[in-house]
Design a protein around this nucleic acid. Structure first.
Length: 214
DNA sequence: GCGACAG
DNA sequence: ATCTTGTCGC
């Protein structure tokens, strides 16, 4: 397993964070919405990208890739482990402005405001949103009865969506999407049956299903 | 130094 | 995230 040079990796994140755009730079409503997730099994990673029609939320495409895991998981450096699979799966989406990609993990809600959703968005120049199940950093702030996540006790980087029946999810902008729109897109794709929005839920389902074949 | 820590 | 069966509960 390859080891990371944390000092350099941190500098790369700090430099890339300067290129993150937290404004809506895509066609609304988008033509499609995609979800990314990865399952692991015996040293192998099975990454999945599910693309849905935004209007009907019907699945139009399912992509899978199975590869050796080369980098260990280290908190705040998740992208160095998982980004390669996502770049491979989403390469043809490069520069598009009619699709938004949901990533399983944080976007701006990261110590250096460079979670994996931001990293993927900046790398391929595509609109992305981070959706996480657990907190990495930040302090919860309540504004008008809605919960948000703030960094340095100041900057709002994520909105927390809470529902009966399900645990909370943390939604933060990845790239070319505002916080308000990120929330709107996620709310549009939530279903009563699952905690995560449909695109990511399906990516999780298919990647897990495929990983069981290893 | 100690504890926290996306997937 | 994964290693893991049945089982308690909404």
């Amino acid at each position: 397993m390859k080891r990371l040079d944390f000092k350099k990796a941190k500098i790369v994140q700090e430099e890339l964070s300067k290129r993150v755009i937290v404004e809506d730079k895509f066609i609304f409503p988008p033509k499609s919405i995609a979800g990314l997730d990865i399952s692991y099994r015996k040293g192998k990673a099975v990454a999945c990208c599910v693309i849905l029609d935004y209007e009907t939320l019907n699945v139009t495409e399912v992509r899978l890739v199975k590869e050796e895991v080369r980098v260990p998981y280290v908190p705040t450096f998740l992208a160095y482990r998982e980004l390669p699979y996502y770049v491979y799966l989403c390469y043809d989406l490069k520069n598009r402005n009619d699709i938004v990609v949901f990533v399983d993990g944080h976007g701006l809600a990261h110590p250096r405001k460079m979670g994996i959703a931001c990293h993927l968005g900046v790398t391929l120049n595509i609109p992305t949103v981070g959706v996480a199940k657990k907190l990495l950093v930040g302090k919860i702030k309540t504004i008008n009865n809605k919960k948000y996540l703030a960094l340095n006790d100041e900057i709002i980087v994520a909105v927390i969506i809470e529902r009966e029946k399900h645990g909370p999810i943390y939604v933060s902008p990845g790239h070319r999407v505002s916080l308000k729109t990120a929330e709107k897109l996620v709310l549009r794709t939530l279903t009563s049956k699952h905690r995560l929005p449909k695109p990511i839920q399906l990516a999780h389902f298919y990647s897990k299903k495929e990983s069981k074949r290893i």
